[in-house]
Design a protein around this nucleic acid. Structure first.
Length: 293
DNA sequence: AGGCTGTCCTGCTAGC
DNA sequence: TGCTAGCAGGACAGCC
């Protein structure tokens, strides 16, 4: 699942592939991939033709292509979005639509073709939670994500602000870590890993955390995401890969997430899984004591 | 106003 | 064997 380390890995790959290239044409194959672009697929295709990519930037889990005219193309990978360089792999025969579906990847949503005749860029997305929009004037920061907090890899990130915001909230620590307006880039996997490292239960109330505890949770989140980035991100299945289709290997370094009933690497107690926000939280019952009710 | 829940979506897997 | 239910979950609309 793409969280900050995965999105940053993709950003680096995209930058190397896209910088200085002029878009010749765009083909949207699935309307849902541009559902947040107000003009729809036709407008998205039209408005991007002829544009030149100057840079690829990121805040939290969002990334955008800064165009050389000050506009931008904003993207979110959602659960399963991928940018892939070059012609995608398997042949799938689609007898419903006929056409050239038999030569295209079944999850291909948008294809970008460039003036230089070099490799295409494909946006693939199995679960279609991801998407792209055109962001006029958004090269520095698209207006659509102005509410997203700076992430820990941002040079302007201010830990003391994030700690204060966290402690002002009236909710559980994990909800707060997942709130992209507090600190961005953290998703379910790294929230669980950060809380395991910080020895805090996911339901600990934020308004009763000491400053040191809040700082500990935040520091742990920064460390685990930095470690994961160095490993190229976390891949459980084929849903997250870099622009060349390669997996990250941080899943081998996970201590809590996805390890129900396996021993805690620190104390040996079996890791537990609890329902949380229509998903799961993994935690060590000995290292991360639940708060009193 | 801020916290929280429901919803979107596909494909894999566990269980009967 | 074949079906279904459950699960994975980021972000936001809309509710309270």
């Amino acid at each position: 699942m793409p969280e900050l380390p995965e999105v940053e890995t993709v950003r680096r790959g995209l930058l190397a592939h896209l910088r200085g290239r002029r878009i010749r044409s765009v083909r949207v194959l699935h309307e849902r991939a541009v559902r947040r672009h107000l003009g729809g697929a036709d407008d998205f295709q039209r408005v991007l033709a002829g544009r030149v990519v100057a840079d690829v930037r990121r805040r939290g889990k969002y990334l955008w292509w800064a165009l050389d005219d000050g506009d931008a193309v904003l993207a979110h990978l959602g659960m399963s979005g991928q940018f892939r360089v070059g012609a995608p792999p398997p042949a799938v025969i689609d007898t419903e639509t006929g056409t050239d579906a038999d030569t295209m990847h079944p999850h291909l949503r948008i294809r970008f073709v460039f003036d230089d005749g070099g490799p295409d860029l494909d946006f693939l997305d199995q679960r279609t939670f991801g998407g792209m929009i055109f962001a006029p004037g958004g090269a520095e920061l698209p207006a659509a994500i102005a509410h997203i907090a700076r992430d820990p890899l941002d040079p302007m990130f201010d830990p003391s602000t994030a700690i204060a915001t966290l402690r002002r909230k009236h909710t559980g620590i994990k909800r707060a870590l997942l709130d992209q307006t507090v600190v961005s880039g953290v998703g379910n996997i790294y929230a669980d890993e950060a809380l395991w490292r910080a020895r805090l239960h996911f339901e600990r109330p934020t308004d009763r955390l000491t400053r040191a505890q809040a700082a500990g949770a935040l520091t742990a989140a920064i460390e685990v995401m930095t470690d994961a980035l160095a490993a190229g991100g976390t891949s459980f299945d084929s849903l997250y890969v870099n622009v060349n289709g390669e997996s990250g290997y941080f899943d081998r370094s996970l201590n809590a997430y996805g390890r129900e009933n396996q021993p805690c690497p620190r104390c040996g107690a079996p890791i537990r899984r609890s329902a949380f926000m229509n998903r799961s939280s993994y935690w060590c019952p000995r290292c991360q004591r639940p708060p009193r009710a």
